[in-house]
Design a protein around this nucleic acid. Structure first.
Lengths: 339, 339
DNA sequence: CTGAAAGCGCTTACAG
DNA sequence: CTGAAAGCGCTTACAG
């Protein structure tokens, strides 16, 4: 019975040591590459390991080294539809990068403002570091992490310059998009954005403001609508913008944009002839809509991978950039009329 | 220096043993509740632990017990927009349930058909069991898991009765939905579904067929359109269904449904007066569309939690149901005309 | 009821 | 270049 249940019992470092008539120390050294060891014995050990499919027990290794080879990824349990692709894609980038470095990622979903789950995981010594993803303006996870002095990096933006952060450059992206409109003589351009609780939405607005400053065009706050997280708020915003005679509307996400297009269509306002439209969050929604929408595209997967890499460096005690910004791409489609 | 860096150094079982003048064994027993121990000393230990905020090192505990207190969650790295809410919500259910049982969940994203990442995690002994989520018809993860004889449960459906599975009852849900239409005299009802590579889409079709069988109505395969994973395929399907004079259309997801509504609107076909429509995947898309769409709603979070619970039971060697089905809710809105 | 000791599978000074 | 030994922080027969 026993034999059956242990059919594929894992072989340990001791097994290979005995088989090769060397010490565990030697085997360990051959694997880690640390410490002096002759090339000969090293190859011998490596060959045996390869042949017998030996895999070191990472848990035991971790115990001895006081490491876990795990990182935690904290994502909001209650994110909205619009943000799911961001989390999905960045998640994949993180997992792949971690895997490539023999790390694994533990998932922590935070509900509401409670950081109990993260706390538990840290108290249990289960991770070497953590990735916080796209945070709210008021984030209690940050406070927790700081108090525990555990390495962490924010995949997103924060005004707190003390926390490591890497993000896509929403500000520059939005700046260029709006700047192009202004440059094309479209000076009355409205902005419709989601919840101001999200730092990312505030960052986008900054890009909008930058563009006006750079173009020397007077900003009109009456053309800015934030916290439009429900269809009716978006519709109201569009109607006001129409009354303001805007020539262009920039939307902070694809859902907002599709509502905008719908409202404009209902009112028989032509896009782009009468009002131009552009958006963040390239998606099938925007690609397939009529007209196809000019939009900013970010590489979320690359963002995840980079964030993970930076955290890993940080865990290994290396110096890392305090803030890293990744680029963007502006895909121009039928909904706009600039170059 | 040292002292600063170890400012919040974790206290170990030895520390509490010495502080209390008992053995590590005793402390361990007080915590685990295993083995004989006097109520007095137990309380003494527990009190000290509480007061000094001692947390056992789960890694060390795991090493000694040959357990990890981790489970892996495998999700497709490349799922489409429509499925994201499913993964997000079930993920949350899983994490919460795991947390409540002092387990943590490791994330594995599989790209394409490669199960390399899962393999690595298992080889590294990092998990006690794994949850496979909504699988493809041909799933190589299953084969891998079986070969390793590691506990796993599928959050979804499979024809392989040997694998533990828990799913929402898409079949019964679809059966009831279509059955209601048939019962209301709407006998020409079309079905438009996504990729047949997904088991869940096949399951839904079964429900559709069940309804016809139960109602004694002859099924017409000409009214069934599968693999409609692109807008143009959906449009083509709708046009054919119109020519077939259908009275109702059932869509397998909200994106399909929104395309269907769009096509019908373009052709000035009234919903529900001329053609009724219903869908799976309740979402804001369906709730806010005009008309609001009758749809099947499933509790993905509960599904995740239950799946996790079953896996945990399985890991603990308890008997579990081979297959568990969770209910559904049919939300009737303006797009249909039955009771 | 309690404890000393061995063990989980590794790593790493230390000595040779 | 190699190994014996101690240690990471727990658990668990075994003995008392």
């Amino acid at each position: 019975m026993e034999t059956f249940r242990n059919g594929n019992k894992k072989i340990t470092i001791l097994d290979v040591a005995e088989a090769l008539n060397v010490s565990k120390t030697t085997v360990s050294r051959a694997i880690s590459g640390k410490g002096r060891i002759s090339e000969d014995t090293k190859q011998k050990v490596l060959a045996y390991i390869e042949a017998n499919d030996y895999k070191p027990n990472v848990i035991a290794k971790g115990l001895a080294q006081k490491k876990t080879y795990n990182i935690a990824l904290v994502i909001p349990g209650d994110c909205n539809l619009v943000e799911m692709p961001f989390f999905q894609n960045s998640m994949q980038g993180i997992c792949e990068e971690a895997s490539a470095n023999d790390y694994d990622v533990m998932l922590v979903t935070t509900t509401g403002s409670s950081s109990a789950n993260l706390e538990r995981m840290i108290a249990n010594n289960k991770v070497d570091g953590v990735i916080l993803s796209r945070s709210l303006v008021k984030d209690r996870n940050v406070a927790l992490l700081k108090a525990q002095s555990i390495p962490f990096v924010l995949m997103g933006t924060s005004r707190d310059s003390k926390i490591l952060q890497v993000d896509n450059d929403h500000r520059a992206g939005c700046g260029e998009l709006v700047g192009r409109m202004l440059g094309a003589g479209i000076t009355r351009v409205g902005l419709i954005g989601g919840s101001k609780n999200y730092v990312v939405n505030r960052t986008r607005r900054q890009g909008y403001e930058d563009a006006f400053k750079n173009a020397g065009v007077q900003l009109e706050t009456a053309l800015i609508f934030e916290d439009c997280d429900k269809p009716d708020k978006i519709e109201a915003a569009v109607e006001k913008l129409i009354r303001e005679n805007v020539q262009g509307i920039v939307c902070m996400d694809d859902v907002i944009c599709s509502v905008v297009l719908q409202v404009l269509a209902e009112k028989d306002i032509l896009v782009p002839q009468q009002i131009q439209a552009a958006s963040f969050y390239d998606s099938t929604l925007l690609k397939n809509s009529k007209p196809a929408v000019t939009s900013l595209v970010f590489d979320d997967k690359a963002l995840g991978a980079l964030t993970c890499r930076i955290l890993l460096h940080c865990i290994q005690g290396e110096e890392v950039e305090a803030k890293t910004l990744l680029g963007y791409e502006l895909v121009i489609r039928e909904s706009t009329l600039f170059g």
